[in-house]
Structures are given as C-alpha cells and as structure tokens.
C-alpha cells in the first residue's frame, strides 16, 4: 500500500499522464491511464513511476515526441511529489528533477549516439553503484566507523 502522503504535484502528474495517454492513443490509453491513476492512489510512488514508464513504453509508437516529453514530465512529477512532504522539500524536488533530467538525457543521448543500449545501461548501473557506495563510505569515514580512519 502507498505509504507516502499524496501531494498536489504528484496528483497533477498522474492526471496529466492519464489524460495524455487517453488523448493520444484512445481506448487503450484510457484503460492504461486509469490504471496509472489507480496505481498512483494505491501503491508506493516508485511502483507508480515504474508502471507509468511501462505504459508509456508500450504505447510510445503511437505518441508523438512532444507528447512523450510532456508524459515524462508528468511521470517526473509523480516521482518527486512525495518529497514535498519531507524536510528540505523544495531542495529535494528540484535536485531530484535536475539530476533525473540530466542523468536521463545524458543516457538517452549516449544510447542514441552509439546505437547500443547496453552501453547506456552499463553507464547507469556504474554511476548509481559508484555514487551510492561512495556516499556510504563517506558517511562511514565521517562518523569514524572505519577501522582505517586516520585523524
């Protein structure tokens, strides 16, 4: 079940996705859009975000690129919306949006550039792994929990 508090931002995002896929693809879009709205209301945000991408990916052939961009913005709103209920909400929302756009745009450009999706996948995995582990180690050392910490 959804544990985040719903916010206006992610509600608007979910509605935007539902309306746009309905408008662009008709009945299949209506069904898919309704499913996205239900998912937004019932399941945690990350599941809704992933499900929304599956829907958009499945219907992407019938959607024009400008609509796709707007759909992606709607999904981004779903992703960052719950951050508004946490401390430093604006900072979280803005930074998450910027990082997601830069990161996603860069990876997409890389995939388009060399024509190999797997290389882009590798870059995403590598950056995430290094970033996550780097933050973990930094905290470990800063708290003095590392055995090899020298003062």
């Amino acid at each position: 079940m959804r544990y985040e508090q719903p916010t206006r931002l992610d509600g608007v995002g979910a509605l935007l996705v539902a309306v746009l896929v309905t408008v662009t693809t008709g009945v299949p879009g209506l069904i898919a859009g309704t499913a996205v709205l239900i998912a937004w209301y019932t399941v945690p945000t990350l599941y809704t975000f992933a499900f929304g991408h599956l829907v958009v990916g499945a219907l992407a052939e019938n959607i024009a690129t400008p609509y796709l961009v707007v759909l992606e913005l709607g999904l981004l709103a779903i992703l960052v919306g719950p951050a508004l209920t946490l401390a430093a909400s604006r900072w979280r929302a803005i930074v998450t949006s910027v990082v997601a756009i830069v990161f996603g745009g860069g990876v997409l450009a890389l995939a388009r550039g060399n024509g190999h999706l797997w290389s882009a996948l590798g870059v995403v995995g590598l950056i995430f792994a290094i970033g996550s582990y780097g933050l973990h180690r930094y905290e470990h050392v800063a708290l003095g929990l590392s055995e090899n910490t020298y003062e």
Binding site: V95, T96, L121, V124, F128, L135
Partner: peptide
Amino acid sequence: QPLLLIGATGIAASLLVHQYR
C-alpha cells in the same frame, strides 16, 4: 525501449538524492 531506461535513471536519481540528503 529507451523510455524504460529513462525510468530506471529516474529511480536511480531519486534514490541517490535521498541518500545524499
């Protein structure tokens, strides 16, 4: 489908920002 890859990067970005914070 590159759009799914964008979804993966979005999740990765969200998790990294939360972790940094």
